[in-house]
Each structure stands twice: as structure tokens, then as C-alpha cells.
């Protein structure tokens, strides 16, 4: 899932086993491929950087490396909310770039069959459909699989149009 898969077919992940990390943002449950996730941290103090894109909440010190942290609520145009005890920073690596994003709560690591994932219906939820790799139909609920490539390459492109290498991917 960390690689861009075409979502032309009805079942973009058919025949594959998916191992996902799931989390909540604004009452909806999202998931990303576990391989992209480096670590999950408790909230820490963010340092704001002037003149950065609005969804960039600030930077943190990840064992000596300074990485940007994004607020997924802002990215998805969801209402802002205060950070809570359960808020976490999910650190991922995408296009050789390490960054974090804030989620309301991390749920679990989940193994599902790719057969139950369907492409996203365009109007399914409040977030832009292009960031969604698919929707997983679990017996009791739906899971939105994020396409982090698109999600964060778009962020990079937005932040700096010159870094076309991010865009190209």
C-alpha cells in the first residue's frame, strides 16, 4: 500500500494479505500499511515553524532528527480539536522522508484480506477521495485505507512546488 496502486479495478488489493495500523481521526477509522509506519509516539511539544503550510503543525525532535508533524484534521479539512491523552504522533517514512502526523487515537494492528477492500466511492466521506486507497469492509465497521504516497507527496508538492521528484511519484 505504500506503493501507488491503480484503483481502476473493483478490488485494488484482491488476493493480498494486508497488515494495517488503524487509528481514529475525528470519529472515523483510518488505516495505513504497517510497513510504512516507523513508530508511534505520545504527543510531545511541537515547535511551530513560521511560514510553513497550514497543515504542518510544527517540528519535533525524533531522537536528534528534526521532523515535521502534520495535523490530519487540518489536512482533511475536519474540525480542529484539542489534543487529548490518547492523541498520538504516527511517524512514517514516505519517499525517503520521515514525517509524523497527529491522530486522535491509535487502535490496533489488523490483518485483513485484500479481497474485502473496495475502491473508495467518491462521496464516501468528508476527505478528498484521492487520498483514499480503498475502503475495507469489516464485519462490524468500515475502515478507510489511506494512500500515504498521495497524501504526503501532495503535502510536499504543496509545500514546495520545486521538489518535483515527490510529485512525480
Amino acid at each position: 500500500m505504500s506503493t501507488t496502486k491503480t484503483t481502476d479495478t473493483n478490488q485494488p488489493f484482491a488476493g493480498r494479505q494486508l497488515q494495517l495500523v488503524t487509528f481514529d481521526v475525528a470519529g472515523e477509522e483510518f488505516a495505513v500499511d504497517i510497513l510504512a509506519v516507523q513508530e508511534i509516539n505520545r504527543m510531545m511539544e511541537l515547535t511551530r515553524v513560521p511560514q510553513s503550510p497550514p497543515e504542518v503543525e510544527g517540528v519535533i525532535n525524533l531522537r536528534g532528527k528534526i521532523i515535521p508533524v502534520l495535523d490530519l484534521r487540518k489536512k482533511f479539512n475536519l474540525p480542529a480539536a484539542a489534543k487529548t491523552e490518547t492523541s498520538r504522533i504516527v511517524v512514517i517514512e514516505v519517499h525517503k522522508r520521515v514525517l509524523g502526523f497527529i491522530v486522535d487515537r491509535v487502535h490496533e494492528v489488523l490483518r485483513i484480506s485484500g479481497d474485502i477492500v473496495e475502491p473508495a466511492p467518491p462521496m464516501a466521506c468528508s476527505i478528498d477521495a484521492e487520498f483514499i486507497a480503498g475502503v475495507g469492509k469489516l464485519p462490524d465497521r468500515l475502515l478507510i485505507l489511506l494512500d500515504i504516497d498521495k497524501l504526503f507527496s501532495a503535502e510536499a508538492a504543496h509545500a514546495d512546488a520545486a521538489t518535483s521528484k515527490h510529485k512525480a511519484a
Binding site: 515553524v49 513560521p50 511560514q51 528534526i66 521532523i67 515535521p68 509545500a159
Partner: peptide
């Protein structure tokens, strides 16, 4: 001195690093 994330525009901000 640590570099800030490179993919962000560094030109016009009054910050040289972190």
C-alpha cells in the same frame, strides 16, 4: 545545528535551522 525538513520552503523564513 540540524537541518529543517528540506521539502519545505526555506528561502523566505527567518529560520536557518533547528
Amino acid at each position: 545545528i540540524k537541518p529543517l525538513d528540506e521539502s519545505q520552503p526555506a528561502s523566505k523564513r527567518a529560520v536557518s535551522g533547528a
